[in-house]
Amino acid sequence: MSHIKIDNNKCKSCYLCVDVCPKKLIKKSETIGKTGEYIAQFCDKNNECIACAQCAMVCPDIAITEVIKS
């Protein structure tokens, strides 16, 4: 099952990844990050991630550290 890794210490809650994911698999979490805002969270209950890496390409903070296809 394809997936991404988000580094909670790097995420600055810009939500560009939330908008870009074609499968809408990234959401605002309930965890407050370093900027005082809710950080992004990958939620893929139905294994829909296509490992397109668009989220990692737009992330300005390289907080999406890995995209794995399987």
């Binding site: 810009c14 805002e37 490992a51 397109c52 890496a53 737009v58 992330c59 300005p60 890995e66 995209v67």
Partner: peptide, 27 residues
């Protein structure tokens, strides 16, 4: 398993950008 994206080798390990959220300097 295939890695489609990983942090570039030329980015220092454990470094974080100090740019404002969403700033294109990081991209």
């Amino acid at each position: 398993m295939q890695t489609i994206f990983s942090t570039p080798k030329s980015i220092k390990e454990n470094s974080t950008f100090t740019f404002c959220p969403g700033c294109d300097h990081g991209v």
